[in-house]
Each structure stands twice: as C-alpha cells, then as structure tokens.
Design a protein around this nucleic acid. Structure first.
Lengths: 335, 335
DNA sequence: AGTATTATTGTTATCGATTACAATAATTAC
DNA sequence: GTAATTATTGTAATCGATAACAATAATACT
C-alpha cells in the first residue's frame, strides 16, 4: 500500500504537507509542491477515500432505493439523479430493493452507518414501521416519483397522477368510449389511489358507469398485462378502452389482444403510463403519459443536496408537469 | 453522533468490549452482552462502516462499469451480479460510464482509493492507455459479456458471439435467404468483429455472396435501427434478411419496415441479439439470441470474489452457452 | 487451599488520512 | 540590522472503529 506516510518520506516532508499539497495547493511553496508531486507520481499515490471520509465525516455518496432496476422508467429518473449528483460531486449508490422491505431498511441504514450522506427513494414505501420511522427522521431523504401521503415529513418530487389519469380518461371519453377497464400495478401505493381516483372522477362527471369488476392486475410487468387482458377478454361484456397503469402492462395487454385475433385500436383502445422508450415503436405505437422522469430525478437530487448541506427548503413538495402523448393505440370506440 | 465511545460509557465497559459484543458475541459474558446491547439500543448506535473499513482495509464493495444503464440487457447481467454479491456480502456500486473513457477511469480508480475492493466491467474498453493499463494490473478485475482480445490479463466471462452469429445465419439460410444485411452497433469492439466474422464464415461456406454495402449502423439504439433500415430500404437491391446486433436495433428496424408498409417476416426477416424482455411481445415476436445474462453476471461476481480473496483461478476465460429463439419475425425468404 | 489454566475485559497502538496548534523560515517595517 | 509580521512547515491530536497485548477474573486441577 502506498500511503501518505510513504509519500512524505519520499518527498522528505511531513504528512501534513503532503495532504496540504493535494488539498490546498496554494498553501505550499512551489518548490515543495514540486517535490511532493514528484513523490506522489513516483509512488503512484492516491489518497484513501475511506480515510478522508472518516476524518471529514462526509462520504459524498447518496443512496437511491429503486424498486426494480429492470424498469427503464426508473432508469430515466436515475439518469437525472446521476447528472445532478455528478455536478455536485456526489456518487450514486443504486440499490435494487425488489420491493423487499427488509432490503429497503438495510439499504436505508447505510446512511446511518456513514456509508452515505443521504437517500432518495423512487417510491415511498419506506419507512414502514416505528423503528424505521424514527430512523427516517434523522436521515436526509427525498422521495421522487410518488405523490406523498399527508403525514410524511420529507420532501417529495412527484407527478400529478390524479391529473394525468384524468387526462387519459378525457382522451378516451372524447373518442366515445363508455366501457372502461383498468389493469393496475402494485396496489398499495399512492400512485394507485390517485390514478384510480382520477379515472373515477371523470367517469362520474361524464355519467359513465364503471364496473368494479373491470379492475384487474397486481404488478407492473408485461406478464401482468397479458394475464390481466386475458381476464378482461374472458368477461361477458368486453371493454372498449383499457387503461394500463404503466407501459409494460400495456405492452402485455396489446400482445394478448393481438394473440386473440383482435385489433388495437379498432376493437380495443389501450393506453399506458410512463412513455417508456419502446412504447413509441410498438405496433401500433402506444398512447401514453410522458412523465418528466429525467427532470424529476434532477430535482430530487438537487433538493437532497440542499438538505444534506443544511440549506433550508422553500417548499416540501413539487409537482412536475406531464404530457399526454396521443399515438395510435387509442382511437374511436367500436360501434 | 453516537459513536462507540458513548456506548461504552453508557454500558460502563471499554470500547473494545462493545466492539467485541457486536462482532464476536460469544467472546463476552451474557451479563456484559446484555448491558452493551441495552446501551446500543438506548443510544441508537450503529458502527460506522467507514471506520470499520479503514481499519480492516476491506470495503466489501465492488464497482460495476456499465456502458448504459437504460439497456435492459445489462440490467439482467447486473441482476446476476447483485445476487451473487449479496450472497458473498458485497455491495454493488453501479457506475454509468456512457462509454466515456474519462468516467471509466474515474470510476475504476475507486478501487485504488479504497472505495471498493474490485471491479467488473460489462465491456472491455478499459484500460485504454498506458497509465490505466498499469493501474489495471493491480486491481481485482473481471470482464463480463465480451470475448476478450488476446493480450488482456484479467478473467473474462463471455458469450460465444462467433457461434451465436453463425447460428442466426444458419437459421436464415435454412429459410432460403440469400440477400443479407446487417445493422451493427458500436463498431470498435470484439463483439462486433466476432459477430460479423461468424456471419461471413457461414455465407462463405454456403456460397452466398455478401455485399459489403449491406452493413449499416453505428450504435445499439432503436433510433439506429430505424435509420439503418431506412438506409437499407433505400438501396436498389432490398435485402430479405436483416441481422441486427441487438434487440433494440431490431425493434427500430421492424418499426421502420412497418412504417414503409412492408411486412415482417413476409417481405423481410429480422433477427436480433440479447432476448430483451419486450422482444417476445413485439408484433411479430422477435427471433433472437438468448444470452444467459443473469448467469454471466453471477459467474462474473463469483470469479471477482475469488480474485479479491486471493483464491487462485482455474482458468482465465469462460464461455457460456447461448440459445437461438426462433419466433415469428423470421420466416421463408420471399420469391 | 494454592497454583495453573482459561475466559473476559481493559489499555493502547493502529488504519490513513486531516487539521489545530506549535515551530520555524521568510518578509516586511522601522 | 533587529523586531514584528506573515508565510510555510512540522508535531501531534483526532475521526471511529479494531485488535494485539496486558491485566484481571473465573474456573480447573492437584
């Protein structure tokens, strides 16, 4: 190991001088700087990040809790986080929680064990229990992506799922649809409630009846889209418009519709959420809600950085705008 | 901050005893254990990972260099890495390099600065220059995914791209195709050479002429697939079989074919590499090479763990088996 | 019971840096 | 040329743990 002591001996100076040469170069003479730099190069020395962090008490690392790394939508958010992190000198530690609450608290406690300075979660499942809640209060933490339920105390950057859901519903209603169905993802989440509530509110306003039986599904996956669609098509009264709670589900749903020899959108209109990359290149291209994922990630990291640095927050919750992308998977209701 | 000293005072023992209680519980009396645990709970104490790592010289962290986090294929590999890492008590630090060599060496040097114990790269672009090469020799490192060029000194887990490419070519030849085209991804890579060489070898054996003009493309993206297909379709002699060097490219290619009113596979057969999740749910489902991505990640991490722990390697390179998935995007050549 | 042995616990050096403070060297002021 | 001031450098404490070694307490043995 080449440590600072070896370098100091090589350069014939004290360790303090070596440290200063590297961290505050204009505090040393040109002559010593030269000597030290030569020794540094000769020894191939790099200061130990660990040692530095112990001393300074800052790791310049943040943890991101990701429910599912495979999901490209989360990856877009992470792209934004990474960008903002890089600009601020933070390293991002990505943690795939698989929705497992044990893993979540494990990873979250990295902040407590001086492994990271702060935490971003891409849903807000954490904290779950009393212990974690107490833990959570002392941690710099930001939630990105999910609108927050009343009592959470940390800042949130979110999409207005309620409004987005209403936009999709209006879009479909304007095409004359009256027989709606929904394929949902994870049920216990604010996203879920908001989107469902958004749809219901529009249908009520438009005096369209909604059959509770037409809500199926349980996870944000292609397979769930297939299975959900299979269930819907097995029902006596086939829906003409299916709202899927993310694009993966929609992709699965379309696949099943095609498999059964039906057409999108002639027989059934399908819409999704997220604007995943491939959604534009499906056959037909998918109508979906574009979430400003990258931007959400950016803002989340900016806010977390402020929290870590003790900058007071202006507001605790931000809603970013969405956009309805009308493509070819939705069209007029069949007669 | 609640440190070990505070806990030791609270429990009325020495710091050593506290440390031992937590790390080697059967070295202390039941009575002291009780005292210490009470104090730990009362103070909400967690040992600083930083301090522990400085002292022990191990971070139990490994860095993974990922060219592109959005690519779900890499994510599958990472899933395997994470699994094996978890089992061995390692934390995975994911680093998105964006193919940027500066970022690559920055991240790679995390191992030198005691930020991580080892490194896995999902391509083998690193090291690029003399400095990095010297650096690379001292680092526990494994390359996953790409067959390695002769002179690299670290272990590799790879797919046999040559054989896989031959399998695809044979598949298409058996359908009577003679007019081949290729849409490639990143050109400067062993993957690229192996796949192209595999295709050429089959065509030569089968006495099928191959027009060099029919090689287009430059990146592993949907957009590149679209643009590449556009170029191919603009040529006087339209190909009947298009081999795309990953599924994203294939998705883009199919999209462009459909957009121009042609049919897959009636007019043109399209095949890809990777077996990305959505590829099975395209319309039509994509014929592709299934790479054992998860397994590759697993093996890579296993090997790296051995290298870190000083276990001697049995061999320096492993090839994992692939599988040709015949789906509906490939079919008989048109007359 | 008195000694030998083993099991616990405490003291203190250490990991590799940073930094407050002390010491020395270089300027500046007179 | 000497004193006062400032710029550099060195010494040693520190961050929060761990672990070698020493000291003490508890058990075993004759």
């Amino acid at each position: 190991m080449t440590n600072i002591k070896k370098v100091s001996e090589l350069a014939g100076v004290s360790t303090a001088t070596v440290s200063r040469t590297l961290k505050m170069p204009d505090m040393v003479t040109a002559r010593t700087k030269e000597k030290v730099m030569k020794a540094v190069k000769e020894a191939g020395y790099r200061p130990s990040w660990l040692a530095t962090s112990v001393k300074t008490g800052r790791t310049n690392t943040i943890v991101v809790l990701v429910p599912n790394l495979i999901n490209p939508f989360f990856m877009r958010i992470i792209g934004g986080i990474e960008q903002a992190a890089q600009e601020r000198g933070f390293t991002v530690l990505l943690c795939d929680t698989q929705g497992d609450s044990k893993r979540e608290s494990d990873y979250a406690s990295m902040v407590l064990t001086n492994r990271a300075d702060g935490l971003i979660q891409l849903d807000h499942s954490f904290p779950f229990n009393e212990d974690d809640a107490k833990l959570a209060e002392t941690i710099p933490m930001v939630s990105v992506c999910e609108r927050i339920h009343s009592d959470k105390k940390y800042p949130v950057v979110a999409l207005d799922n309620y409004a987005a859901s209403r936009a999709l519903a209006h879009h479909l209603v304007s095409y004359g649809h009256t027989k709606f169905a929904v394929i949902v993802g994870q049920v216990v989440s604010q996203i879920h409630k908001d989107r469902l509530y958004g749809l219901r509110s529009v249908l009520t306003e438009e005096n369209i009846e909604f059959d509770e039986d037409m809500i199926v599904g349980q996870s944000y996956s292609i397979e769930n889209g297939i299975e959900g669609m299979r269930q819907l098509l097995a029902k006596p009264n086939r829906p003409s418009a299916v709202i899927c709670f993310n694009d993966d589900i929609a992709i699965g749903a379309m696949h099943e519709i095609h498999r059964q020899g039906l057409s999108v959108p002639d027989d059934i209109s399908v819409v999704g959420f997220d604007n995943v990359k491939v959604s534009a290149f499906m056959n037909p291209p998918l109508t979906t809600i574009d979430q400003p994922a990258y931007e959400m990630g950016r803002r989340g990291m900016e806010i977390l950085s402020d929290v870590i640095n003790g900058v007071p927050l202006t507001r605790s919750s931000e809603m970013l705008p969405f956009q309805l992308l009308e493509r070819q998977s939705s069209g007029p209701a069949p007669l």
